[in-house]
């Protein structure tokens, strides 16, 4: 049985889709079967970020409504053969998603894949609540900025109350992924530090993605950053985050900071 992860944030534009593609590709490259699922019905973009926009035939809504079978809608990545995309519909709206329909599709994905990574739409409406509904774990993507941190706090509350796991009295394990971090600005007191964000949200950190031109370059050419930007700082940070998601205990490096200090801090936070 595969593990279901939701990549969520509340706020839009913080890097959910970029992170879904990057983490999915990083895990799939280790040989495990990964499906990335776009829940942003009406505003799909995961297909574009992954370079599969011209190969979409059927989508999540078609599968939910029984118009297409799951294997017909899944698109196999051209670079990594264990990576698949289930795109969202671009022409329908989010009301076409039903709770039972999503439950069926997620259950089938769990049987076929080791990892099912759901890219949530922004907001806290139906699309976002259904994307998190059947998740075992959540990656909360946040920028070190007030509105993103506030919205992350709200999403954490929803993960603890509105998911199937929460309703059964179980926990959805949560991981914080900080993106667009600028160590120089943080050091000068112009940006919330990693420590600030961790103290406010108090959930364990899974990675810090530094602000980088490489991220835009990757989306321009339609390849996950962990595929096309092999040795760039954001690619390395996403690869490390993927390994932590898979359960490895790796030292956390804050860009531009000495290692020792932060390891103590991370050890404390992650406990």
């Amino acid at each position: 049985m595969g593990k279901v992860i939701v990549v969520t944030s509340g706020k839009g534009g913080v890097g959910k889709t970029t992170s879904t593609a990057a983490l999915g590709a990083a895990i799939a490259r280790t040989g495990q079967n990964v499906a990335v699922v776009d829940f942003d019905v009406g505003l799909r973009n995961l297909d574009l970020v992954m370079g599969a926009e011209r190969r979409v035939v059927f989508d999540l809504i078609n599968v939910v409504q029984g118009v297409a079978k799951l294997p017909q809608a899944l698109i196999r990545d051209k670079r990594i053969e264990t990576l698949y995309l289930l795109p969202a519909s671009q022409t329908r709206d989010k009301d076409a998603l039903t709770e039972d329909g999503v439950a069926r599709v997620i259950a089938e994905l769990r049987l076929r894949f080791d990892w099912v990574i759901c890219d949530s739409p922004a907001g806290i409406e139906r699309g976002a609540t259904l994307a998190m509904r059947y998740a075992d774990e959540a990656v909360i993507v946040a920028n070190p900025e007030v509105s993103s941190v506030r919205d992350s706090d709200r999403i954490i509350g929803l993960l603890d109350s509105k998911t199937a796991r929460a309703e059964r009295g179980e926990r959805v394990e949560k991981h914080l992924l900080i993106t667009r971090y600028d160590p120089g600005r943080a050091a000068r007191g112009e940006m919330l530090t990693i420590e600030d964000v961790l103290e406010i949200l108090s959930i364990p950190l899974i990675g810090i993605i530094p602000e980088s031109e490489e991220v835009l370059r990757a989306s321009n050419i339609g390849a996950p950053i962990t595929v096309c930007g092999h040795d760039s700082p954001p690619a390395r940070a996403y690869n490390d985050a993927a390994r932590r998601l898979a359960g490895e205990a790796l030292d956390m490096m804050v860009p531009g900071e000495k290692k020792g200090f932060f390891n103590r801090l991370f050890g404390r936070r992650a406990a």
Binding site: V146, R150, D153, R154, G157, S161, R188, G189, E190, D196
Partner: peptide, 27 residues
């Protein structure tokens, strides 16, 4: 240099304490 991050941090701490209380109260 203008240090705006400590202001952001303090505003968030105050706001979120309030909002968390409101959410748990409505539940």
């Amino acid at each position: 240099p203008v240090k705006s991050a400590p202001v952001a941090r303090e505003r968030l701490q105050i706001l979120l304490e309030y909002e968390r209380r409101m959410v748990s109260q409505s539940a």
